[in-house]
Design a protein around this nucleic acid. Structure first.
Lengths: 123, 123
DNA sequence: AAAATTTATGCAACTTAGTCGCAAAGGATC
DNA sequence: GATCCTTTGCGACTAAGTTGCATAAATTTT
């Protein structure tokens, strides 16, 4: 587990530190994008937010992590991987990942965010 | 022009005031979503931001206006109308509207935001 | 392996889009 | 024209995220 994360850092010329390992571990285990608060909760170790955000910025530059804003003025982070869409429910705030076929679009699409009411809340 | 806006307010049980008219005029003339700053610039009349945001909240509740966050920690507003997607270029920050066919999705989709590099910046 | 240099972390102060409380202004109603 | 209700503007506030700076941890040099 840790080896994979260490390898991820090495591959991108990023030094492997405790803080970075903690962040990446949480993101790796997550099934959907998480905010700073959520990541912090899952970390079982304290970390200054400055450290967090600086490392996230580093990951982003390296292309390891992708971030986007939901509709709550917070950033949500996830490991980059398959390009998939996110559905954000305006009512329960749950973020779910989904595959979407867009057909052809000019330019390069890096992320897709759908908003509305999820299956549950729509009833 | 003004009559249409007035009618829009009447139809939704919203009193027609100067401030509201100013906001809606700008939104009506816009071809893509605008932020508070952008709307303010186009208004040719001063308005307190509290007034602006309170009226926007009112429009939202009434279903006249739709808002979403881009990736710059700002809200972008537009009149609701045909459900269409927005493409936000991460480089030039331009927001363009586009039609997208998603196929079938469970729940109710209210907005779609794509991010990436636009046709121009992708070159 | 101690000193020097570089890099990462934590703290505290700061930034800024958006929000809230409150008083004054503007209309409507009697 | 006095009373009531709504809207507006001002200023203080909020909170996610950022930045400067000092300390701590690595890494390199001698």
């Amino acid at each position: 587990m840790n080896e994979q994360i260490q390898a991820l850092c090495n591959d991108h010329n990023i030094k492997f530190t405790t803080a970075r390992s903690l962040i990446l571990e949480v993101l790796k285990a997550a099934s959907h994008p998480l905010s700073y608060e959520q990541i912090k909760e899952k970390m079982h170790a304290s970390m200054d937010k400055a450290t967090f955000y600086r490392n996230i910025a580093l990951f982003e530059e390296a292309g390891i992590v992708h971030k986007f804003e939901s509709d709550d003025r917070k950033w949500y982070f996830e490991l980059t991987g398959t390009t998939h869409a996110h559905f954000i429910c305006e009512q329960c705030r749950q973020i779910t990942c989904m595959e979407v076929d867009l057909g052809k679009i000019e330019g390069e699409v890096k992320s897709i965010v759908l908003k509305g009411l999820c299956k549950e809340c729509h009833k």
